Amino acid sequence: MEALYTAVATANGREGRAATSDGRLDLSLAMPPALGGSGEGTNPEQLFAAGYAACFAGAIGLVGQREKIDTKDVSVTAEISIGKDETSFALAATIRVELPEELSGGTGQKLVEQAHEVCPYSKATRGNIPVTLVVE
């Protein structure tokens, strides 16, 4: 792969800070209450969810452009769960895609499936964590 862009971020623990090299993102990190933390900061699962949702929305736009389908009213929500597996912790993802009425049915389902094939986050997670696609 030839890199077109590289994002750089540094974190100093789950209970510290995370910041990007350009300073556009600089935030406090905290464990969520469900994992025993204060919840008074964001956490890696929220950051992953935001990134995955944005990337998947971009993939839908790309596929829509290729197929000449208007995707401006499509909304993507990513849910990232953390839990215990046999050895430590693991992630799972649910990608919820809200489609406008005109894309309901087969066209919308095909659009979401094609986006899942080209989305870089979907490619990175494929075979590594369970990803469930939900078309709404």
Score class of each variant (00 low, 15 high):
residue 1 M to D: 14
residue 7 A to N: 05
residue 8 V to L: 13
residue 10 T to W: 04
residue 10 T to P: 02
residue 13 G to V: 01
residue 14 R to L: 13
residue 15 E to V: 11
residue 15 E to Q: 13
residue 17 R to D: 04
residue 19 A to P: 03
residue 20 T to K: 00
residue 22 D to L: 04
residue 22 D to Q: 06
residue 24 R to Y: 12
residue 24 R to N: 14
residue 25 L to A: 12
residue 27 L to A: 09
residue 28 S to G: 11
residue 30 A to S: 10
residue 33 P to V: 04
residue 35 L to M: 15
residue 36 G to F: 10
residue 38 S to N: 07
residue 41 G to W: 10
residue 41 G to A: 07
residue 45 E to P: 11
residue 47 L to G: 09
residue 48 F to C: 05
residue 48 F to T: 05
residue 48 F to K: 02
residue 49 A to W: 10
residue 49 A to Q: 07
residue 51 G to P: 12
residue 51 G to E: 06
residue 52 Y to G: 01
residue 52 Y to H: 07
residue 52 Y to D: 02
residue 53 A to C: 10
residue 54 A to G: 14
residue 55 C to A: 03
residue 57 A to P: 09
residue 57 A to Q: 14
residue 59 A to F: 00
residue 59 A to Y: 00
residue 59 A to P: 00
residue 61 G to V: 03
residue 62 L to P: 07
residue 64 G to R: 05
residue 64 G to T: 00
residue 65 Q to W: 05
residue 65 Q to E: 14
residue 65 Q to V: 04
residue 67 E to L: 13
residue 67 E to W: 11
residue 73 D to I: 06
residue 74 V to D: 04
residue 75 S to C: 11
residue 77 T to F: 08
residue 80 I to C: 01
residue 81 S to K: 11
residue 84 K to L: 15
residue 84 K to P: 14
residue 84 K to Y: 14
residue 85 D to N: 15
residue 87 T to K: 15
residue 87 T to F: 14
residue 88 S to Q: 14
residue 91 L to I: 13
residue 93 A to H: 08
residue 94 T to R: 15
residue 96 R to L: 13
residue 99 L to S: 13
residue 103 L to D: 09
residue 104 S to M: 13
residue 105 G to A: 06
residue 108 G to C: 09
residue 111 L to H: 07
residue 112 V to T: 05
residue 112 V to F: 00
residue 113 E to Y: 07
residue 113 E to P: 07
residue 117 E to F: 06
residue 117 E to W: 01
residue 118 V to P: 01
residue 119 C to V: 04
residue 119 C to L: 01
residue 119 C to T: 05
residue 121 Y to L: 08
residue 121 Y to S: 03
residue 123 K to C: 02
residue 124 A to G: 04
residue 126 R to V: 02
residue 127 G to I: 09
residue 128 N to Q: 05
residue 129 I to G: 03
residue 129 I to R: 02
residue 129 I to T: 03
residue 130 P to L: 06
residue 134 V to S: 10
residue 134 V to N: 08
residue 134 V to W: 05
residue 135 V to K: 11
